[in-house]
Design a protein around this nucleic acid. Structure first.
Lengths: 186, 186, 186, 186
DNA sequence: GATGAATGAGCCTTCATTCAT
DNA sequence: GATGAATGAAGGCTCATTCAT
């Protein structure tokens, strides 16, 4: 039963992450529970408050960010330029922007959960070390901080709600590439 | 009496736009009516559906976009570079991003209102003409379309909900400047 | 419409008072609204918080307490003993006890509503003046305060939930009479 | 193992009784199980229905009532007046009133459990015998029955929810004393 | 034409109860 | 036998929308 509960917990985090990214911050909890295939009360058992659910997502994202920075550090020396571009695109693929409104929600009622603060600090540190490599290699302006860089990437990858104009491009790699060029020193 | 009604209509549009930009997309209709100083039924009289209110806002925004393009066209020849930068920043100041969730809402129920499509087309045309000047002057990559450019600007100016971390910079001009650099040809 | 709204407001207060006394403090708001013949949202429009509804009831009760004290004061001189007994029984008939759990509820979240405090003070003052007459006439021990007297009466008139034993007497006048005797000086 | 189960059963009854008296009738079952230091399923194993738990409490209370009546009977002849007063106060200390809402709950679904009826009858009989002594000694009016007397004591010892007025006295011995005086013959 | 009162639908949250381990 | 995870049902509350004045 312990492993079964863990599976449901993971299903809930996955469902929440997917639906938040897909349908915006107003997804009903009932929809998350349904997507995960569990009852609403099960969601509350695993995540008593909204913050707890957010922290659950952040834990996943945190691990994935560390994957990105680790891989980038390993391949940096052999091909810095390609490594840098892959790093930024990999970070962008995490769709960090989808988490912004959730983080904001946790703020309304209280101070951010301690665990979230800790994880965020660690991730920012790891990203900062990659940014230092990039600054040294001339890929990144010296004045841009890890917070700014991450926030910028989050902003331009923040999911748009479905927009009723067919000519709106769904691919946003052009914007990411522009961001990469835009943060380069002159 | 006609002018009185017109004043209330304008007050409603201004209130809606202000509150959407300020408090996010979840502002209750009652709050909009209250901000405009009218009853809720008056809002419904002027704007029977949600889309009608959005169209009302779009009309205002449309006029302001045309202001930007017109002014930019007038000053272009004397100082193209400064004119281009001012244009981008002026567009950014319109905070087009604040409208995105509202536009999305109108999509859920129906096809976008004809009037909105018409206005959007006109604005995109005017922006496109400025972009052509910029492309010729070497400020903008040829492959970037008016839709992409506008959407990019909207994305990076989309209001963030309040975030519970004090180290997040509230000023976003650095991102706009990075965008301007990033859309430049190599 | 104004008078119509007032009628509904009164119906809500009456329904709430009746159901609180009859079914205890856990009556769902839906039941109160249904008893008053209005929708649930109408209840919330008239009484945005639980406290507001309680205050509404207290206003009614307050007026009735003042009726009791006034009448008692008028007839006192002609027949003090009968007047005193009638006064206590009339107070008991108000079933003040039914309000106790409600007052407690308002306390959990916040300090008691100012209006409630004011009305309570006035009612206690009026009751206190009658008690002074009773003390002088030898009907009441000197050490018993208005608060104690009222609370005692509230306690012994607090409604019981329906109890599944048929031999439980529903009439409680014997207890009230015992109270009257018990507060007399030796 | 039998004694282990018995210990848990007793812990559950004690927890339920304590929490009902302390936090009111709305205590969740999970809180009772937690207070007793067992899982929720264990509570259900020992007490399949709500009535069963109530009966468990009644058994304890019943034994304590018999203690009171027995002791009172033993000391009656040497000092009747003191014995009577001690008896009433001991009964009051049992806080029978705290059980009233629970008894009521068992009534909603069904007829009272047979075991409860039997225990109640025995306790009422024992109390009745003490009351007879008191009537003979001139401490108690002849017309007051054992049910009335017990109910009266339960009513005046029923726990009040916390009340938000600081001038409300928490001590209620004055009311019990008034009750003792009030039930005396003239 | 303007007002705001009334309404039902929907989401959030808790709790009693059952079931798999 | 004991545990605690899972569940649906129910109440609290808000909001978009309609109607009577």
């Amino acid at each position: 039963m312990r492993s079964d509960a863990m599976a449901k917990r993971n299903a809930l985090v996955a469902a929440a992450r997917h639906l938040y990214a897909d349908r915006g911050p107003d997804v009903p909890f009932t929809a998350i529970a349904a997507e995960a295939g569990v009852g609403i009360a099960t969601l509350y058992r695993h995540f008593p408050t909204r913050s707890d659910l957010i922290v659950g997502i952040i834990e996943q994202v945190h691990a994935e960010i560390l994957d990105c920075t680790t891989r980038c550090g390993e391949e940096w020396d052999s091909h810095p330029a390609g490594s840098w571009l892959r790093f930024v695109r990999a970070l962008a693929d995490l769709r960090l922007g989808a988490l912004i409104p959730q983080l904001a929600l946790t703020a309304l009622a209280e101070t951010p959960p301690e665990e979230a603060v800790r994880l965020r600090g660690r991730a920012l540190g790891a990203v900062g070390r990659v940014l230092d490599l990039a600054k040294t290699a001339g890929f990144l302006r010296r004045e841009i901080t890890a917070v700014e860089f991450s926030l910028g990437l989050a902003i331009i990858t923040r999911p748009l709600p479905a927009i009723p104009f067919s000519d709106v491009p769904s691919d946003r790699s052009w914007l990411i590439d522009a961001f990469v060029r835009g943060v380069r020193p002159d």
